[in-house]
């Protein structure tokens, strides 16, 4: 599909040059390093180095909301469930709280569903400018026949998904077959057409941080618009150390090619405080340009609830309760 409406500002491709990719550079991939202890130290000390308070905190939390890919990826998803989620996406925070903050019109970044839920999601989000993202390519394992994985992308784009979250073949990383990973990603990207593509690395299954760094680079070389940590189905999902490795890869890619690739941590981020730490990490390591839904998304389902309570606390000065906020 082709995006023509410039007002659809949530769409990355409307704002930034898309990542055209580049030839696979195995020297670069081979030189990638990631020292776990040093990375963990940086990740552990960051929350102590950066802290935002009061109205700054409220504003940052609103920014976090705008970057959420509100997600439901369950076997029991129904059209009704997806419609509820879409309603929450349109009005993520209670109207009176947004009024008090002067943040009327705040929405989440996207709604993320399985292929069969695209149609009800698109219908429910009609007119909202909120894009629908679909997980694809035999999510979460990515082990269905290759041609079917490519076809799944095409079907999802046809069904109205404007963002496709693909899963890479972990085996290509684990066996060091970077050419195969590159080729696969290239084809996925081509199948996406105008829809923008997030490459899920499933970092919890890649074994080492060095593999995460290498896989990040290869996916970007092959044209990924976003790189994303996890399916949410691995035993370890997004962590700060993994994020640090991936965004440093994004930074290097930007330095060499001038192209900004987006980042999406997914799974395991459920607290407002964690969201602030992630935003600070992005601000510190990638810069302010990435603090926006067209280059940064949280893949999260329960994060929003905690942020809502914190925002109400900011407005009223009283700690909030979850039942005071609308379910999604």
């Amino acid at each position: 599909m082709v995006v023509k409406d410039k007002d659809q500002t949530l769409l990355p491709q409307a704002l930034e040059q898309r990542n055209p990719g580049m030839a696979l550079d195995l020297d670069w991939v081979g030189a990638a390093q990631a020292n776990r202890s040093a990375i963990e130290r940086r990740a552990a000390t960051l929350p102590g180095r950066r802290s935002v308070k009061k109205e700054y905190q409220a504003a940052w939390l609103c920014r976090a909301v705008s970057c959420i890919d509100l997600t439901t990826l369950a076997g029991d998803d129904t059209a009704g469930r997806v419609r509820r989620l879409a309603a929450k996406a349109r009005q993520p925070v209670r109207a009176d709280i947004l009024d008090a903050l002067g943040m009327q019109g705040l929405t989440v970044g996207a709604v993320c569903v399985y292929h069969d839920m695209i149609a009800p999601a698109v219908a429910a989000l009609e007119g909202s400018n909120i894009p629908v993202a679909a997980v694809s390519t035999g999510f979460p394992a990515g082990l269905s026949p290759f041609h079917l994985r490519v076809q799944e992308i095409e079907e999802s784009v046809k069904a109205g998904a404007r963002e496709i979250d693909i899963v890479i073949s972990r085996r290509h990383v684990l066996t060091g077959d970077w050419q195969a990973l590159y080729d696969e990603m290239r084809e996925f990207r081509a199948a996406c057409g105008e829809a923008h593509v997030k490459a899920i690395l499933a970092t919890g299954e890649l074994g080492t941080l060095r593999n995460v760094a290498k896989a990040s680079l290869v996916c970007m070389m092959a044209g990924a618009d976003f790189i994303k940590t996890s399916t949410g189905k691995e035993s370890v999902n997004a962590t700060l150390p993994v994020s640090l490795v991936m965004i440093r890869a994004i930074r290097d890619y930007h330095t060499r090619t001038g192209v900004k690739v987006g980042y999406k941590p997914a799974g395991g981020i459920s607290k407002a405080k964690d969201a602030l730490t992630y935003l600070a990490l992005i601000k510190e390591e990638l810069g302010d340009a990435w603090l926006s839904p067209h280059l940064f998304r949280f893949g999260a389902s329960s994060l929003l609830g905690d942020i809502e309570r914190q925002l109400e606390h900011h407005v009223t000065g009283r700690y909030s309760a979850s039942y005071r906020h609308a379910a999604g």
Partner: peptide, 16 residues
Amino acid sequence: MSVKEIFESMDYGPAP
């Protein structure tokens, strides 16, 4: 600064 302005600037602000 208003929340809206900070939302745009994404500054850190004071944390004394």
